[in-house]
Nucleic acid binder design. Sequence first.
DNA 1: GCCAACGTTGGC
DNA 2: GCCAACGTTGGC
Length: 160
Amino acid sequence: MNYWLMKSEPQTFGIDHLARAARQTAGWDGVRNYQARNMLRDGFRAGDHAFFYHSSCPEPGIYGVIEVVRAGHPDPTQFDRGSAHYDADSDPSDPRWYQVEVRLLTRFSHPVTLATLREHAQGALRDLALLRRGNRLSVMPVGAGEWKFILRLARDSRSS
DNA sequence: GCCAACGTTGGC
DNA sequence: GCCAACGTTGGC
């Protein structure tokens, strides 16, 4: 099983949206970055887990855990003229953009904030892609050790 | 709203 | 292929 971190702006699609979705499942669409696309297409497997990260909001951080229920497949919004993510240059016979389908597993009662993650930037989370300077990837891998460590932070913040 | 950092575009 | 201009991301 692989571990990931997936970013979204809660104004657009946050963990509450996923919680209210049918079967608490949704396509993670709209990713328009080639490096992220490659991970969605080639790296994600059904059964993988991911942190749901909220960006560009009052309290950036990890708000819960989601599970990949369907591996990479073409993102339908690229062919939808009405979509903000429509891509006129994408060829249906050779789609350019991919999505995965995710299901909500756990919503943390308190988020693991970016500030908390940064407290460990020199320690257990020194290799976390999220904390790398200038990182703008919306999808990124998380190591097994980092995963466990962050889950522990979530548990600790719950009891505080 | 500001700004740093990065990706993409397009002229050459 | 280079690189300047531009657009986007995302924290603050």
